[in-house]
Design a protein around this nucleic acid. Structure first.
Lengths: 192, 192
DNA sequence: AAAGAAAATCAACACGGTGATTAAAAAATA
DNA sequence: TATTTTTTAATCACCGTGTTGATTTTCTTT
């Protein structure tokens, strides 16, 4: 993106902005190339020079979001309780609330959340493996899926609410839920 | 549906079957009316006599599923621990694995899961309200969202896996997860 | 069984988004 | 300034859409 012609950089920029604007009110699968180019004031032929579908453009936006926030997803970003990568991701989402509402919300593509989940999974489950050496990775993956889905649901509720709860209070709730779920999961695993 | 002309009943039936077949390999938003009618061997004009989009047809399928399984979602279907409606829904999904894979899975419309969630919520949260009278319904709704999303994630993983885990084992895990989450939630709420 | 009503079929139509192809204009680069 | 790259504007055939009116098939009523 850096070493591109200014014209190309401009085209990609306005197309990205146009898509984000349209996605505020319409699902990605309903966006036409025509309306996208009209919104961006770019010739329709130009779109095809860089992408083939609106989804391609969305994937580029998602990738840039990951690149720009990679630090939050790295295993040792934040020293906290066992799910520190989860905490890092939460922080990142809270700091990028607007764009996250669009690319993670109901008008975005679930592919992005799945990708985030897999990025976070490894570090978290590695930690649990050491903590609960008696249990298989498969079992711990189940637990991770459960906590990740539950947490993301709360975050998305909050994001789509418009954020009536304060950021601090949401973070606090997630932290406590994660902590107590971890306790519960310990019990869950002991039973086996 | 019962008191309809045989011709209408037949048309709706083959269209439903055709859609379910197509949804095994394609997202609902990508299904065209043309291919749907070709699959069902029904004239395209006939489709418009009953529906206006493939989504309308899917909504009808979802509604019939709800109607046929209403018993599982009623508050006192099954006497178990506090989340008996959740258990009822799990049972229902396990018994209708194939159609659930389609209408709840990645090719279906999330609207259906949201609807199920709201059907289940009231009974469950009512119970919790009695058990934890100190806490607001808003707080308990948060907890419900968390557990529902986590549980559904596990169920859908299992459904889309093809079911490597046995039904009994999945039910057992969900039951234990629900039980221990409930314990954890008690702790979570005490903290406040 | 006959008549009337309702439903499905069929062909035809205009419309709009798609994806690709041109040649000309505009902008970046050497 | 000359050359290369990108964008534009205009055009094309293609396909799914949604609707229409005439016709045939099926169901219901008498």
């Amino acid at each position: 993106m850096e070493n591109l012609d200014n014209r190309v950089r401009y085209t990609k920029m306005v197309l990205q902005q146009a898509l984000l604007k349209i996605l505020q009110s319409k699902h990605i699968d309903k966006v036409t190339i025509k309306e996208l180019c009209e919104e961006a004031k770019v010739n329709r032929g130009t779109f095809y020079l860089h992408y083939s579908t609106p989804n391609d453009l969305l994937i580029e936006i998602e990738q840039q979001f990951i690149d720009e926030n990679m630090a939050y997803f790295s295993p040792y970003f934040h020293q906290g309780y066992e799910t520190s990568q989860l905490a890092g991701m939460f922080t990142c989402i809270l700091k990028n609330k607007e764009i996250c509402r669009i690319i993670m919300g109901k008008n975005g593509n679930p592919r992005f959340l799945q990708r985030l989940q897999e990025m976070i999974r490894k570090g978290v489950v590695d930690g649990w493996c050491k903590e609960f050496p008696k249990y298989s990775r498969t079992d711990l993956d189940y637990v991770f899926d459960f906590i990740f889905a539950g947490s993301m649901r709360l975050i998305l509720n909050w994001i789509e609410d418009g954020g009536s709860l304060s950021t601090a209070e949401l973070a606090n709730r997630l932290d406590r839920l994660g902590h107590y779920c971890h306790m519960a999961i310990s019990e869950f695993l002991k039973l086996k």
